[in-house]
Design a protein around this nucleic acid. Structure first.
Length: 319
DNA sequence: CGAGTTTGACCAGCGC
DNA sequence: GCGCTGGTCAAACTCG
């Protein structure tokens, strides 16, 4: 499918042994027990495989477009060997999408992935496309609501890169520096918690995000970003960021926000976040839990959105 | 009054 | 074909 071919996407999990080493200033990544370290010039006295995410990139930057998804991908050990510059990274399940390459990348695949998140997006795009067409017909193609639609349907199958992570928080909608407008909420199957849909309020910015709570652990909020911001952070909030490495939702922890949160990227990668108000860092969890700052962990076993959205951090570049 | 939220409706994809 | 589910729209409503 052209759509898939045009995007980057995550492959469903299957790598059961991703291991993330950790240090106070960074983390390493290994694939199938093969350490995959990312150079770090700022943390020489840490484990060799460690690197300083802060000096490497930041989620915020990534979302802001100042750092591309390729960087993000690299930072997390994604698409480690991709030679060509990536133009985007996408979280989505790869249903049948190229089963061929998928198998190639995921030897143990067995996976689940029941998901339809990716498909859902496609669907939504199409849905809107249709809708827009209808409306266009109704008002001669100048529907006032067009605004939002024009972008999404925009180029029909074109899907935005997605990035999902989990955070341990008591508030559903975490502050991330950007302004969001909620445009929908839906009950999620098999979950007592609804999923909320947000869109960046900045004009021309088509970034969206979905927020929902894990039904397995209500204290965990699953946030999925879709697209990249094409504008800077609101000035008023920018100061709080300082380009620190933290998940988009964590950029500006609200008052009362738990100082620790964890982010789980791929199937078994668990990141812990320890914020101290002023400085914050990501602390990926490693098997031995050596990080002194480890606060909380969370293992995704296999469920709904996460399963679908964050099956693993493996990306694949389109061909 | 503008911006954001709520909520019911609509629609498409998917599985059976 | 039908029902379920996810995603979005948009009118009504709330809030500052």
């Amino acid at each position: 499918m052209s759509d898939e071919a045009r995007d980057f996407y995550y492959h469903t999990p299957f790598y059961e042994d991703h291991r993330y080493g950790t240090s106070a200033t960074g983390f390493s990544f290994s694939l199938n027990n093969s350490p995959l370290s990312i150079p770090n010039s700022s943390s020489p006295d840490h484990e060799p495989q460690a690197f300083d995410p802060c000096s490497y990139m930041s989620f915020t930057e990534s979302l802001n477009g100042s750092s591309d998804y390729n960087t993000l991908a690299r930072a997390f050990g994604l698409s480690p060997s991709s030679p060509e510059p990536l133009s985007g990274v996408k979280i989505e399940q790869s249903p049948a999408v190229d089963a061929g390459s998928e198998t190639a990348v995921t030897p143990n695949s067995s996976a689940s992935s029941s998901s339809n998140e990716a498909g859902g997006d496609e669907g939504s795009n199409k849905g809107k496309k249709d809708r827009q067409q209808k409306e266009s017909v109704d008002d001669g193609g100048e529907s006032s609501k067009q605004g939002s639609k024009s972008k999404k349907k925009s180029e029909k199958g074109e899907r935005e890169p997605r990035f999902a992570f989990m955070t341990k928080s008591e508030v559903d909608h975490l502050e991330d520096g950007y302004r969001w407008r909620k445009y929908g909420q839906k009950a999620v199957k098999n979950s007592p918690f609804p999923r909320s849909y947000y869109r960046c309020t900045t004009q021309k910015c088509g970034v969206k995000k979905r927020v929902e709570r894990s039904f397995q652990d209500p204290s965990v909020v699953i946030t999925t970003y879709e697209g990249q911001h094409n504008h800077p952070l609101p000035a008023t909030l920018r100061g709080n960021l300082g380009g620190m490495l933290m998940p988009p939702s964590m950029v500006a922890p609200p008052a009362g926000f738990p100082q620790d949160f964890m982010v789980q990227m791929p199937s078994s990668a668990v990141y812990n976040y320890h914020g101290t108000g002023g400085m914050s860092s990501f602390y990926p969890q490693n098997g031995s839990g050596t990080s002194p700052l480890h606060q909380q962990q969370f293992q995704i076993s296999d469920y709904g959105l996460l399963q679908d959205m964050v099956p693993s951090m493996f990306l694949k570049q389109e061909q």
